[in-house]
């Protein structure tokens, strides 16, 4: 564990708390992509199967369970609980059908694992989750773009998620310098870089709006 990874994890936790606060305070899920949440749940469930096979630390297991539980709760709120359910507008969240994200990632993961000779289902699903995580934020960014004017807490939510990914890149740099037995995984680096790059545009407008103290509005 290093400071960048810990700060990244905390940023991830803060983003989830901000999202919960955002849902509760506005009593609606307008501007929030249910698809992104569902993709994240698929990512967590497929990646954290090692909860049953490998114990790393209490911290590690706790966080995994917390991510799965909180994301499940958010999805349940938007799908089944009032007033979120009736206010949720699926037509605003139409970008990227889940199967068009899942299928290519599954194919790519299968291919990558075949090449590497990792044939256990847990390895293949782990690799799949690495690819899928890079795409998971896309529907949310698309929803932001549709409404253009981004509500404050929603903006913070995406900011903290992006910060988490940025800090993970610093964590990899740190680990490759200071951990003697650290093994590079280029698939993780590339999808991590792609994922972070997706946030860059949003970050720019977020920082500018904070600097000038105005509302966060995205260009068309």
């Amino acid at each position: 564990m290093n400071i960048f990874r810990f700060a990244g994890d905390m940023s991830h936790v803060v983003s989830i708390l901000v999202l919960l606060l955002r849902l509760r305070s506005s009593k609606s899920a307008v501007g929030i992509s249910l698809k992104t949440q569902e993709l994240f749940l698929i990512v967590f469930v497929t990646r954290y199967l090692d909860l049953f096979t490998t114990f790393y630390s209490l911290y590690n297991s706790f966080m995994k369970v917390a991510y799965i539980a909180s994301t499940t709760y958010i999805i349940w709120m938007i799908r089944f609980q009032e007033p979120y359910k009736s206010k949720y507008d699926a037509s605003q969240d139409s970008f990227l059908h889940i199967k068009f994200a899942v299928a290519p990632c599954a194919g790519l993961a299968l291919f990558a694992c075949l090449v590497k000779g990792e044939l256990s289902p847990i390895d293949i699903l782990w690799t799949f989750s690495i690819f899928l995580e890079a795409l998971a934020i896309v529907p949310q960014l698309f929803v932001l773009q549709r409404y253009r004017e981004v509500e404050n807490l929603t903006g913070h939510y995406v900011f903290f998620l992006g910060a988490y990914r940025g800090l993970y890149i610093l964590n990899w740099v740190y680990r490759s310098y200071y951990e003697q037995f650290y093994r590079h995984n280029w698939l993780v680096y590339v999808s991590g870089a792609v994922q972070t790059a997706l946030y860059v545009d949003f970050f720019y407008y977020y920082v500018v709006s904070k600097y000038y103290g105005g509302k966060l509005t995205l260009p068309t």
Binding site: D9, Y56, N60, S120, Y168, R183, N185, V188
Partner: peptide, 10 residues
């Protein structure tokens, strides 16, 4: 073991 790379991350 090759498969353990980075798998301690969240």
């Amino acid at each position: 073991k090759v498969t353990e790379e980075m798998k301690d991350e969240l």
